[in-house]
Design a protein around this nucleic acid. Structure first.
Lengths: 356, 356
DNA sequence: CTGTTAGCGCTTTCAG
DNA sequence: CTGAAAGCGCTAACAG
């Protein structure tokens, strides 16, 4: 009777005086078993549930593993166990430092748990996101962290079918697919506007990214408008602009707005690096900040702390969002039930600095 | 005779009036085959080599796939085919914008090729990198993009055994494990120093990250020294500093150096955001840049174009490095031979702006 | 063009 | 505590 699982007859593995040569072929678990004179299952246990083996056997196996340079095949392991140790994360842009903070957060937590991060960016496109979700599900990720809170109908459908934990992080939506872990864009924007009013600014401008196809920007604009309403101030279209991202864009938005509405005395840049671009432009034109024009930003980018003047902004829990998202996935995987609340508000704070 | 591959008797899949319910269980290829009344292989072909099927059959199968919401299991596919569609990338830090550009580059290329990116950061630690390499090989990545050019002996060993394409991107090393795709830190640093000398600066300071455990920083320091030698200038320890990364750190380095060596008239910050930190500090102290002190940076961060004055720096092909690395992996996978040259120099350029 | 057979490397389950 | 059998969901290789 042929011994099951014996090394392939073509001799992929050659043991020579205690050293291993693999000729590009991977060492398999069965090779370790043969080398250590135990069964394949014993090797599997030594690696996965070491406590269930005698210390002697365990040591023998683990030594052999090291000696012949065995690297477990998690692909096979995942298939056999119908489990996965990979979490997928999709962000609008990898380069954007805001998202890289969130990515760092999930990466840290996953790594500590022996899990891995499959990463992709949707380029701010819903269709691309849908394609990526499909591709990630095909990779049998055990959880998915999305930034978007809007999705194509088909994306929603395949997500629902997948039955894995899904975290949405871009906004604290009221009806998440599964869980939302974020801060409220609406509240953040509203509070900052109220704060500027409290500082005495009479004519507060608002600049954000295109609200079309961008729920976050939309919420921020709503927050700004809600603040105006609360303050009993009228809306003025000349004080609101939707622009593209980027430093240059922020600079233009400021100069344009000051031309069209010279009474503006503060501008809240609710997106990206717009505020920084505006500040640099003000430096260039020798406009005093905040005397001539006060500037507030959204995210607490590292440089905002170092510009002259330092920039007032919101402090959003970007890193923490990543961490908590990964933790939520892990927790759901362990308990296999919706233990977490559907929404986790990580809050925000206003950081007052010299620019307002 | 029991029909092989029939749906499990417990009826995981229930087809009801053309709709699918999966109850959390995944639809398998065999379910598609049964639903379409073809063999499993036909489904496999419809998905992977559609040209080998009659249009009729292909359409039938693909429609069925959509109808019952089948998502292929790439884990199983990878195992069976001994191929993988995942490339691993390990960077020192995910948050650092320099690396996120490189990540974006590889992500873009991989995505276009239908491959995926498994990402992790080593936190600048060689041991952590070793652990990650092991973990990624266990995931059977089909290629590996590393930033480090130094590795632990064990990391080198398991990489060699893996027999997959490896790209090192942090420096244009002379003896890469497999392929190096980068620019030369030595040359970049040397050229910038020579450029500053050509601009008329007599006493050029140099600030970089700790050279211990950081080959890139070491090469940059060597480049600076080589330039001094070429210029026939003496080395002055007071003009060289190794510091931690960060804006604050750059600010301190500058003030310290100007105190210890007041004759310094230009400083080359060969790392991270040090130059920006120094510039902001100069603004704060009202030191004229470049009149009192010229400042040059290493990487062309987005903000360097917008500061006042704009900062002279090197333009390094960060994004391109990511792209070309991913492309190199793909090419090697296709040709299965070392077609690429071992080293690919993507060059750099000096961007002269107002700060020097 | 379509189907059948035999695994990929591992875990699960059940026996001892 | 250790081992044997039976797949995980898919593809390679060969047949028709």
């Amino acid at each position: 009777m042929k011994k099951r699982g014996a090394p392939a007859a073509d001799g992929k593995i050659v043991l020579t005086e205690g050293k291993t040569r693999t000729g590009g072929q991977a060492v398999r678990m069965i090779d370790v078993a043969n080398a250590a004179n135990v069964s394949l299952m014993t090797v599997s246990r030594a690696l996965n549930e070491p406590s269930k083996l005698s210390e002697e056997t365990r040591k023998l196996v683990l030594d052999t593993v090291r000696r012949i340079g065995y690297v477990p095949n998690h692909i096979a392991s995942n298939l056999a166990s119908a489990r996965s140790n990979v979490v997928g994360q999709i962000v609008p842009s990898i380069q954007n430092s805001l998202y890289s903070h969130t990515i760092q957060g999930s990466s840290d937590v996953l790594r500590a748990a022996g899990m891995h991060l499959l990463l992709a960016d949707s380029g701010y496109s819903l269709d691309e996101e849908e394609a990526l979700i499909g591709a990630f599900l095909a990779q049998r990720v055990c959880g998915l962290v999305l930034h978007n809170t809007a999705h194509t109908p088909r994306a929603v459908q395949i997500i629902r079918q997948a039955g894995i934990p899904i975290i949405e992080t871009g906004d604290l939506v009221h009806n998440p697919l599964d869980m939302a872990i974020s801060y409220s864009n609406f509240n953040a924007s509203k509070e900052m506007t109220l704060y500027l009013a409290a500082r005495g600014y009479k004519s507060i401008g608002f600049v954000c990214l295109a609200t079309r196809n961008n729920l976050r920007a939309k919420e921020r604009l709503k927050g700004y408008n809600a603040a105006l309403t609360a303050l009993g101030r009228a809306r003025n279209p000349a004080l609101v602009r939707e622009v593209e991202g980027g430093l240059t864009s922020g600079a233009h938005a400021m100069t344009d707005m000051m031309q069209r509405a010279p009474e503006v005395d503060a501008i809240f840049f609710a997106g990206d690096v717009l505020a920084v671009g505006a500040l640099f432009e003000a430096q260039r034109r020798n406009w005093k900040v905040p005397e001539r024009i006060a500037i507030a930003g959204f995210d607490d980018l590292d440089i905002l702390r170092h510009t002259v003047p330092r920039l007032t902004c919101l402090n959003l829990p970007r890193l923490e969002i990543g961490r908590r998202s990964a933790e939520a996935v892990l927790q759901r995987l362990r308990n296999d039930g919706p233990v977490m609340p559907g929404r986790l508000d990580l809050g925000f704070e206003i950081i007052q600095r010299e620019s307002t």
